[in-house]
Nucleic acid binder design. Structure first.
Length: 739
DNA sequence: GTAGGGTTAG
């Protein structure tokens, strides 16, 4: 037998006389020799040599041999679809096998739908119809592009061709229906299979895991066991993934012991699935032990470990994993960015993003952009957010639901509601997250009625609201004083929409009622709650008490809140402010003393402003910023000119015991939002809007000052505080002083 | 001589 290395050209016997496939034995020997060579090809060049030889010897006109060559050209690891098509076109009479091979090659190629056109060609150009081998390829293509209508048509055709009950066809259909999101049809197909095999079960289990029902997957696995179907590797992977998603360490451990006890051969994918289960369930020790034992590791292994440390907020270890990776890919970078972004560390996320941009040969993908946009939204990095938006346009990145929602969210949270609206209108299809993002954007900008309109339009578009949608709608009602509307929707939430209200929804309604002054009603609402009122419910009531200066109720709400969260600094500060507002300075000082003794610190006021892509932060009373002298100079100038126009500082906003009037005024001027606005006045030119983000609620005096600056300096000022946006223009604020 | 199900980042 000839042997060849990949580097050497093949040396083939020449058979110039071979022209008839039905020729005597000597030639048949040679043909089987050639076919064995085809099987041992390791690159395209060798295959082309054999192809040429077959044409020369006439062996290519033998349908079996030609099909063999074609199959390798279309399916091997060095396959080339272009070349395979040329081979196919040379085959005089392709048989059913040849057609199926071409369909298969296209179905698993970059454009799976092309397999459908090949299928149509087969039906019209040949005497062959689809058989039980054809359908799994076609159905796989339908699954790949998630086309339910295509899947359904193929299902119908398979039934007509009498192969609808074939277990391979049925299993492909289950997978296809899951990937199109039609879980009911998948289940129906499953129940109709007479002799379910392990793949039937696996398709169901992994389908449920991937579509967000890991509990159902575990249920099915138990049923599978009770029916004595032997689990395979793929079953284990699916079940471990379900354990990871449900954080079921106990069951996950049992699966791992089963694997060990039964000496199941643990391949890389299975080991990775075990690793993922351990990390997601928070057992980094088990994960590390397994990781150290693994002989082979791929990027999934490394990224799973990285994420494991990130879950425990051990960012140093996570970073260490990224650094140790032999070949870092985009998934690993994304894992670190999103870990920071989702744990309230948006600045760190942005630093990693900037570092990623310096890497060569790593292309950003949709997930990178979604995580980074979310970080931009948190810190108010509008310029970077805009840059990402133009990157998306420039690189023709598709606006899927995730990217669309992230853009809407970023623009809304960075204060550019118009851009958020533009993105929303520019897309044809919107899912519940896209609609909810837009409703949330309108809510934080105080466009309550428009948010409600959106909520109804969403339903006209046949998109069902979820819990997040309702939170955003209630938030919109709250900022616009739409009490009746919120109450009505809250009543309908469960009865008409089938969504059980969660604690955050209760807190929203308390906020709606309280803000509008219906304090007693809010109390009654809390008393009637079917679940124990959470800290956020009492916090909402307390906030309302501050607005409406209800001291006794505030004390009650605060007591309950502190029972649940004894170290809630915001509650202490709110109560102290309420005391101050009512002139109860003794209580103020008692409370402040209590905070001092217990070491509880008020979160310092902090405002930030983005100038040329850099975020500048100002703390209240800041003297850290390199420009702070100039900023204070500007502030004095501004206050003087405002005073000349009738402004009087609101001393009632000074919520500490300060006797001297002058000191009180100074303390007001230390507020971080004033510093940031003045920095904006120094560093930017009209008509550019000044955009400031504050971590706490904006104070009343700062609110008045911002209104006056917007008029006297003819500048638009946009402030995002902890709860909402304030657009200051021509001496007015978009919140109509209701916040 | 042909087939179906698998792990990481939103």
């Amino acid at each position: 037998m000839a042997s060849f290395s990949t580097a050497q050209p093949l040396s083939l016997p020449r058979h110039p006389t071979f022209s008839n496939p039905n020729q005597p034995t000597a030639n048949n020997d040679r043909s089987s020799h050639t076919i064995s060579l085809i099987d041992r090809c390791s690159n395209l060049r060798q295959l082309k040599q054999i192809h040429a030889q077959m044409v020369r010897t006439g062996l290519f006109s033998d349908p079996y041999s030609a099909s063999k060559l074609f199959a390798i050209s279309a399916l091997s690891h060095f396959a080339s679809l272009d070349y395979a098509c040329k081979v196919f076109d040379q085959i005089p009479q392709p048989n059913s096998f040849t057609w199926n091979t071409l369909i298969r090659a296209y179905a698993s190629g970059p454009d799976p739908l092309r397999s459908i056109s090949v299928f149509l060609d087969m039906v019209s150009d040949s005497r062959f119809g689809p058989n039980k081998y054809t359908f799994p390829f076609l159905i796989k293509a339908a699954a790949e592009v998630s086309s339910l209508s295509l899947g359904q048509s193929l299902h119908g055709m398979a039934v007509k061709s009498a192969v609808g009950c074939d277990v391979f066809v049925a299993n492909s259909l289950i997978h296809c229906y899951f990937s199109c999101g039609d879980l009911d049809s998948a289940c129906k197909v499953f129940t109709t299979i007479q002799e379910k095999d392990v793949v039937s079960w696996n398709s169901m289990i992994t389908g449920f895991v991937q579509k967000g029902s890991p509990d159902k997957a575990l249920e099915l696995f138990k049923k599978m066991e009770s029916e004595d179907v032997k689990a395979s590797h793929v079953t284990m992977v699916g079940v471990l993934s379900a354990c990871a998603k449900t954080r079921n360490l106990e069951f996950g451990r049992r699966v791992c012991s089963y694997i060990e006890e039964n000496r199941v051969n643990v391949n890389l994918t299975l080991a990775n699935a075990m690793l993922d289960m351990y990390t997601k369930c928070g057992s980094i020790e088990d994960a590390k032990r397994l990781f150290d034992k693994m002989e082979e590791r791929d990027n999934v292994t490394w990224t799973t470990m990285l994420d494991g440390y990130a879950i425990l907020e051990d960012y140093e270890a996570a970073r260490e994993v990224l650094n140790s990776m032999p070949k870092k890919d985009i998934v690993a970078w994304n894992a670190l960015i999103s870990a920071y972004e989702q744990n309230g560390k948006p600045n760190e996320a942005l630093l990693v993003f900037h570092e990623l941009q310096l890497q060569k040969n790593i292309k950003l993908n949709q997930i990178t952009l979604v995580s980074t946009l979310s970080a931009c939204a948190q810190v108010g990095a509008l310029e970077l957010g805009r840059w990402i938006h133009s990157y998306i346009k420039k690189h023709g990145i598709r606006l899927n639901f995730y990217v669309t929602s992230a853009l809407i969210h970023m623009y809304s949270k960075c204060g550019d509601l118009e851009k958020a609206r533009e993105v929303f209108s520019s897309v044809e299809k919107r899912d519940v997250f896209v609609w909810s993002a837009m409703i949330g954007g309108l809510a934080m900008h105080g466009c309550g009625n428009e948010a409600l309109d959106m909520f109804y339009k969403m339903q006209e578009a046949n998109v069902k609201p979820n819990g997040v949608t309702f939170t955003n709608v209630f938030c919109a009602c709250s900022h616009s004083g739409l009490v009746d509307e919120a109450e009505l929707l809250f009543k309908e939430m469960e009865s008409s929409y089938g969504i059980v209200p969660q604690e955050k929804h209760y807190a929203c309604i308390v906020d709606v009622l309280g803000r509008s002054g219906y304090l007693e009603k809010a109390v009654k609402f809390i008393e009637a709650m079917p679940i124990p009122p959470s800290a956020s419910v009492w916090g909402a009531l307390l906030g309302a008490c501050k607005i409406h200066a209800n001291l006794s109720l505030a004390e009650r709400a605060c007591t309950r809140l502190l029972e649940l969260e004894p170290r809630n600094d915001g509650a202490h500060v709110l109560l102290s402010n309420i005391y101050a507002k009512s002139g109860k300075w003794e209580s103020v000082s008692e409370l402040r003393k209590h905070m001092r003794v217990t070491g509880l610190k008020k979160e310092p006021g902090c405002s930030s402003i983005e100038i040329d892509g850099t975020i500048h932060e100002f703390l209240s009373g800041d003297n850290e910023h390199p420009m702070c002298e100039k900023v204070y100079g500007k502030l004095n100038e501004v206050v003087e000119s405002l005073k000349a126009n009738g402004y009087e500082p609101e001393m009632s906003q000074v919520l500490q015991i300060i006797d001297e009037e002058e000191m009180k005024e100074q303390s007001l001027n230390l507020h971080s939002e004033k510093l940031a606005i003045c920095y904006g006045l120094i560093s930017t030119e009209a008509p550019k809007a000044i955009r400031v983000i504050k971590n706490l609620r904006v104070c009343g005096d700062c609110h008045s000052v911002a209104k006056l600056i917007s008029q006297l300096y003819d500048r638009e000022i946009i402030v995002r505080d902890r709860y909402r946006f304030h657009h200051f223009r021509n001496g007015q604020c978009s919140c109509n002083d209701f916040w």
